[in-house]
């Protein structure tokens, strides 16, 4: 039950993208297509689960004063592993996501969860927290990517949904499109939450 709570928290109530508003740089930068968002999310999930679990495991031996550098080493190790493995086995995807994979190191979701949760809780709870946060981040990125890809290029996961030659909103593929889409999605999230609260009371 506790594990379930740790897991779902990141999906909605404390969704890193829509609720906590952290780690927004990759959210805005890589979501030009649904597949980019999904893969960036998947890479982040891996780093999150591994680093929160490992940090929780070794939290006892890390002196308090050097905990941040210690966490950063752990996080950057897993990030570099993802980067190298992706480069070797998924070169096409790697060339698209490019610099944003190494930048997972400085994604504040990862360090944030290490500091706020993994440093105080058991290994298994930390892993579930990491998984929930990671998947919350992933669905946010995938949704954003899907909307931008559909409106900007007329495709979804590479499949053409809008007939060739139809007018697409080019701006959705560009950085302003990311801000516009994120803003609208956040407004919708707030609206839904406000309605839920009203219903409850």
């Amino acid at each position: 039950m506790v594990l379930w709570k740790d897991f779902v928290r990141g999906l909605w109530a404390e969704n890193p993208t829509f609720r906590l508003n952290i780690g927004l740089c990759p959210v805005l930068a890589v979501t030009t297509s649904a597949i980019n968002g999904l893969s960036m999310g998947a890479a982040t999930v891996f780093v999150l689960i591994c680093s929160t679990a490992l940090i929780s495991l070794i939290k006892g031996i890390i002196p308090d004063k050097v905990r941040i550098p210690a966490y950063i080493i752990v996080i950057s190790t897993f990030t570099t592993i993802v980067d190298l493995v992706m480069h070797a086995y998924l070169p096409d995807l790697h060339s698209v996501l490019g610099i944003f994979i190494p930048l997972i190191v400085v994604n504040c979701i990862v360090l944030g969860r290490a500091e706020a949760f993994a440093a105080k809780n058991s290994v298994i709870r930390s892993a579930f927290d990491g998984l929930g946060m990671g998947l919350g981040f992933t669905w946010a990125l995938t949704l954003l990517g899907s909307i931008r890809e559909l409106l900007g290029s007329g495709t979804l996961f590479g499949l053409a949904l809008i007939p060739e030659g139809a007018t697409t909103l080019g701006i959705m593929s560009l950085p302003p499109g990311a801000f516009i889409t994120l803003g609208i999605l956040m407004a919708v999230m707030n609206m839904v939450s406000a309605r839920q609260k009203k219903m409850a009371s």
Binding site: I61, I62, V66, A70, I73, V74, T77, T80
Partner: peptide, 13 residues
């Protein structure tokens, strides 16, 4: 502690 963590991760990488 930092040296050990650093060495382990360097080894893995």
């Amino acid at each position: 502690v930092l040296a050990i963590i650093g060495m382990v991760s360097a080894g893995i990488l």
